[in-house]
């Protein structure tokens, strides 16, 4: 159950993750042509800042997942085995309840396609595209215990 983690001490807010994410959601998967597609692809990750630190925000696939409970159409579901929140776009009515209840503000509304814009860890590839795109290595895709052991070894230093 790998998840995305961000090192707030590294993020420079260059927004490269936003760009590669949007390109990954485009039809062509290529920067130069993606910006001219009829339906502009939207990034699932947004770089924000608070308390002098920058950080990308994307769906945490959190254990609480209030979005799943709030979804009136049962389009959102939680797969306990993979620890991921899944979305069925055929069932989705575009009511934006998920957008409202997300405590992280990590879900946005695609008004044109009437579906929530949510990180799916780049379901069409092995790994989320943003991890390799980040020029400072602030984005990690790890198991929870991997993260903990990293933190511990960091503290030892």
């Amino acid at each position: 159950m790998k998840k995305l983690y961000y090192d707030v001490s590294k993020c420079l807010a260059c927004k490269t993750c936003e760009i590669v994410c949007a390109v990954g959601k485009s039809a062509s998967k290529e920067l130069f042509s993606s910006i001219t597609e009829d339906t502009k692809p939207l990034t699932c990750v947004k770089v924000k800042d608070a308390q002098g630190k920058n950080f990308p925000i994307a769906c945490r696939h959190c254990k609480a997942h209030p979005c799943v409970d709030a979804c009136i159409a049962h389009a959102l579901s939680y797969d306990a085995k993979t620890g991921r929140v899944l979305h069925d776009k055929d069932k989705c009515t575009g009511c934006w309840m998920c957008v409202m209840v997300c405590p992280y503000g990590a879900i946005r509304d695609n008004k044109k396609l009437k579906v929530p814009v949510r990180c799916d860890f780049c379901a069409d590839t092995d790994e989320p595209r943003c991890i390799n795109a980040c020029p400072v290595g602030a984005i990690m895709f790890l198991e929870e215990d991997e993260l903990e052991s990293r933190e511990q070894s960091k503290n030892k230093k």
């Binding site: 260059c14 927004k15 490269t16 760009i19 590669v20 130069f32 910006i35 390799n132 020029p135």
Partner: peptide, 10 residues
């Protein structure tokens, strides 16, 4: 340096 910054490339 790859991927190069999309803002710069554009």
């Amino acid at each position: 340096q790859e991927p190069h910054c999309g803002f710069g490339s554009l």
